[in-house]
Amino acid sequence: MITKEQIVERIDSKVKEDGAFIVEVNVRPNNKIEVLVDSEAGISISYCGELSRFIEAAFDREEEDFELEVSSPGIGYPFKVKEQYYKNLTRPVEVLTSEGKVFKGILKEVNEDGFAIEEEKKVKIEGKKKKELKVFRYEFNFDAVKRVIELLKL
């Protein structure tokens, strides 16, 4: 059976040379191989085809048959690697914490340990009739979140 490690070893340097990064590699028991890659500029269908051919060239289908799917994660797919956070700076995201709380805002900062989002809300200010727009900043450690996804809009 082809292993995840074999796939990663085969594509790691090529993907980096191409300015992309590996998001996830899965090898199912039925030899279905799923490879997710991304880059700052996004991934084209032609690049997925190129990477698929590159992987197929390393393995002999006569020796071991497999199904291969190469794609990029879409909107709504949970972030798996830190590079996805950097790619999505200044974009709207939804954060689900380990405690089950949901936060939505603009991804404003990413560092070694975590990230920060900012959310604009209209809030009632004491002594004023009209609600005013206020910015709330939330900071998270990577290990304190269950899921982060990119949103089309807030």
Results as ranks from 00 to 15, higher is better:
129 K>H: 10
106 I>H: 02
47 Y>F: 13
32 K>L: 13
146 K>N: 09
99 E>K: 12
8 V>Y: 06
111 N>Y: 13
19 G>D: 02
101 K>W: 11
22 I>R: 05
139 E>A: 10
34 E>I: 14
64 E>D: 11
67 E>A: 07
50 E>L: 05
125 I>C: 14
101 K>N: 15
67 E>P: 02
19 G>R: 01
19 G>L: 01
100 G>W: 13
6 Q>E: 15
22 I>H: 05
75 I>F: 05
60 D>G: 05
81 V>P: 00
82 K>H: 06
153 K>S: 15
115 F>Y: 12
116 A>T: 04
51 L>W: 00
52 S>K: 10
76 G>P: 15
74 G>Q: 08
121 K>C: 08
51 L>M: 03
16 K>T: 12
68 L>I: 12
37 V>D: 02
78 P>M: 11
102 V>G: 08
103 F>P: 02
114 G>R: 08
90 T>K: 15
110 V>W: 03
50 E>C: 05
85 Y>R: 01
23 V>N: 02
113 D>S: 15
117 I>N: 08
121 K>A: 11
27 V>Y: 06
65 D>Q: 05
105 G>W: 07
60 D>T: 08
96 L>C: 01
64 E>K: 07
74 G>Y: 11
146 K>V: 10
143 D>S: 10
22 I>Y: 03
42 G>V: 09
103 F>Q: 15
62 E>N: 07
78 P>S: 10
130 K>Q: 14
56 E>M: 10
74 G>T: 14
47 Y>G: 02
50 E>S: 05
62 E>Q: 14
3 T>H: 08
70 V>T: 01
25 V>H: 05
